[in-house]
Design a protein around this nucleic acid. Structure first.
Lengths: 229, 229
DNA sequence: CCATCACTTATTGGATCCACTTCCATGATA
DNA sequence: TATCATGGAAGTGGATCCAATAAGTGATGG
């Protein structure tokens, strides 16, 4: 199963694969992760798996208790809000920088990604991998246009701390939220097209904060279900 | 030597100790790190050392080439500028949040730390551990007052990516820079005392950006010395 | 005299082994 | 019957072992 095409250290490969499993929901939130099981699944020994798990712990995606194993982390709702406040600040900065640097080509890409989202919003539920990917790409393009690798890295770190399928699920059920999302993207594209750093910054902040509020609300509902139901 | 007072996983302890060695300059920039030597020094096997090194690599403090070992990372000057632009954004946010949350007690601490810096500035060169600590504490207090663990964590990650003694060295030689530093701290304290988020944000940004420029300049001089001298 | 190639050596990365901790079930005892 | 002790099973963390890779070194040929 994806037999490890030798590209760099094994442990990074393993970490990436485990992260992917968590991101797409294959390894559900709260699920315990057995080193032996993962090692067997990937056809390697426990050593690189252990190191990979530690990497993921460092990134905040899982929790490890000594001698008790690792579990996919369950973020508290207020943590989501805190993280998204930071994300808003960083993505705002990215948009600000992008406004004076983005190319016509990249602007076209943004419109393309948003068109995919718009089309999907009318047709299906919205939680599909395609829409998740389009959403990711939208933000990635802005980051690339911002042309600051450190900034991109920091934003990535935040995103990698929350399972992606959860963010999608939060979008999935709410038609109104999806349309709001698309309109916010449009506002960002407009500001970038106008090469207006202040407006781009504001538009991006609004967008991220609003997403964060929806996600926080989702986690709050989920916490109630899990802990009291 | 500091015989590992059992608090938590061994690998974290090792990572912290190696990081400390790098931060205070005991392990100089560009120096190769031998797993066996570190293991012997700490009285453990190579396994936890390897994991610790990988943690540090993840944090960006060292570089590891496969089968070629790890070296203390040499940041390029432009990287320093990029990182400090991000840091300015984050610390600005921290100051903004702190303005409406900071306690009188914490304000007093800020003044105290800055007094230490002021006193040291007149007396000695400025690169001492005490001044470094006071500088760190100043920013830490603001972060704590901001009351957002995610924000603190992100700022920490940036700071942990550059050996601390280097930042101090950049300060050490320049009397004018030291005084500028202290005045900027005063401006931040004033803004926080006035509970003015906008002013606090601006003052902190100015301060961090200015520090970043000095540090960048230091790295540029150093690069020339190392690579062409 | 210099370039190249085989060989040696140092060092890393992954696998295996062992000890220790934790959890769970079973049974003894008040 | 409830509670606590005890033993076993599962799983992790660290140590050790082995294979694979890359630098260094000396011999050989042009």
């Amino acid at each position: 199963m994806t037999p490890h095409t030798d590209e760099g250290p094994l442990v990074d490969d393993i970490a990436a694969r485990i992260r992917a499993r968590i991101m797409n929901g294959e390894l559900a939130i709260g699920k315990p992760l057995r080193q032996a099981a993962l090692a067997a699944e990937f056809g390697v020994s426990r050593t690189p798996v252990r190191e990979a798990l530690r990497q993921l712990q460092n990134g905040g995606l899982i929790e490890m208790q000594p001698h008790r194993g690792a579990v996919v982390r369950v973020p508290a709702p207020w943590e989501v809000r805190q993280a998204y406040e930071v994300r808003a600040e960083l993505e705002g900065l990215a948009a600000r920088r992008a406004a004076t640097r983005i190319t016509e080509r990249q602007l076209a890409e943004l419109r393309e990604h948003n068109a995919v989202l718009h089309e999907a919003a009318e047709r299906e539920a919205g939680g599909s991998p395609a829409t998740t990917a389009a959403n990711d790409c939208f933000h990635t393009v802005v980051c690339v246009a911002a042309d600051n690798p450190w900034l991109s890295r920091m934003i990535d770190r935040i995103n990698e701390s929350f399972p992606r399928n959860v963010s999608s699920l939060a979008l999935a059920g709410d038609e109104r939220h999806r349309l709001e999302n698309i309109r916010q993207h449009e506002a960002i594209i407009e500001a970038l097209t106008a090469r207006d750093p202040d407006r781009a910054d504001d538009a991006m902040r609004d967008h991220v904060i609003s997403s964060g509020e929806h996600l926080t609300a989702w986690y709050e509902r989920r916490s109630q279900t899990v802990f009291h139901g």
